[in-house]
Design a protein around this nucleic acid. Sequence first.
DNA 1: AACTAAAAATGAACATGTTCATTTTTGAGG
DNA 2: CCTCAAAAATGAACATGTTCATTTTTAGTT
Lengths: 236, 236
Amino acid sequence: MTQGTPETAVELTEKAQHTRQHILDTALSLFVTNGYEATTLRDIASAADCSLGLAYRYFSRKEEFVLALYWQMAAETGAEIAKLGAGTVGERFDALMTGRLKDAFKYRECFQALAAAALNPSSGVNVLGEQAAGMRAEVLKGFSILVEGAKDAPRPAEAYPLAMLLYAAHFAVILFWLYDRTTSQVATWNLLYLLHTVLGWQHQLLLLPPAREALKRTYRVLKGFFEGKEDLLLAL
Amino acid sequence: MTQGTPETAVELTEKAQHTRQHILDTALSLFVTNGYEATTLRDIASAADCSLGLAYRYFSRKEEFVLALYWQMAAETGAEIAKLGAGTVGERFDALMTGRLKDAFKYRECFQALAAAALNPSSGVNVLGEQAAGMRAEVLKGFSILVEGAKDAPRPAEAYPLAMLLYAAHFAVILFWLYDRTTSQVATWNLLYLLHTVLGWQHQLLLLPPAREALKRTYRVLKGFFEGKEDLLLAL
DNA sequence: AACTAAAAATGAACATGTTCATTTTTGAGG
DNA sequence: CCTCAAAAATGAACATGTTCATTTTTAGTT
């Protein structure tokens, strides 16, 4: 609910927490004013009035600063869903994403760097996979609530698969937004509105067996993808 | 059709071409054997029997090596589409992507690095945008042919929008594949099969006005996204 | 107060991508 | 064969992310 490093093995003393937070705040503020790439770790250390080595005591790589921010935002997503007003799945998803992206705007460049790092499995930054499993489960639960609490919720059997689909869509939209070069990210807002429309068909569509079957298959694919398991059920 | 740097302003002499190609080949082979990250530019230079500086004469950054590879594969995509057998849109798309991904397999890690760089607008590597416009147009034309030559091609008005959708889907599948941690990328193959199924509905679906409208809107969103223009028609 | 082990903090050293001033090679013209 | 400017090639120097051996501080115990 607060910030940074979930499921970290090591406990930090109160003083360490303070120092860590101070360095993190300094770093984020430098990122916002000067940009992520342009901010060197020496800049951060000197702005935070500490040594280079100390920054590395708390953040094992540069991306870790943004990762801390990401954890914070991911955690907030659950809370935001809870605050969502009544409405259809489409409306709730739209409202959620619009809000989240607006919040993230000032850190857009930071998240670009994070996405780049996360896309590189060898970078050690894992937004998906192992360590993130807890957070993923939590956000997924949030999307379940989003679906189940909607006016046009599908039948129970389809609710969780649909939630998974929205979870994947939420990542896709974030990626789209990060790389959207249209002015004011117009394309992203149009995409969200389009999704709004298409999600409006969801309830009717899922009355048809082929659509239900496709959703189930989509669910299996995404589950395999996010969990990264070998998924012994190979095909079909 | 051959390799590297399309629309490069500077002309290279024959000797320069040779040297460049030699360095590129050396680099790619090192990438494959030792991995992209583990291969330093000093490794490349020494394996290619040249100085560090010379490598930079031909490749302004490390990612440029993989970018050259990417251009080559993107160019081949057009040729692969032409070779595609008869079949439905779904079958042809499936066959194309399966083939392309199998070809790309040995460079998977390289492309991960490239994707990471490409995702970072500040990195100067642009797989989309300006310089890539020519290649994009060409590949898009390829997808048009894929659609129009299919047994279940939609009506002409919908062909190009559908081609654009496939173009976007092809990027999405590549990204999915790059980050697919299931064994042998099973999730990706399942995804492709799923898309195969869903694309099988395309023809019937596009007889319905709402679906046609949605496709048209999707087209507009994607067009804006890829061209990165401000797209004055703001909403709806 | 003295001692001490753990925690916190330091900064020099390193690796590697990148730049650049300089040198060497090439090849056309006289 | 000589000249010389352009092309090709060099390698030292730089910037910055990262590591690590070392020093300083902290806090609990005697």
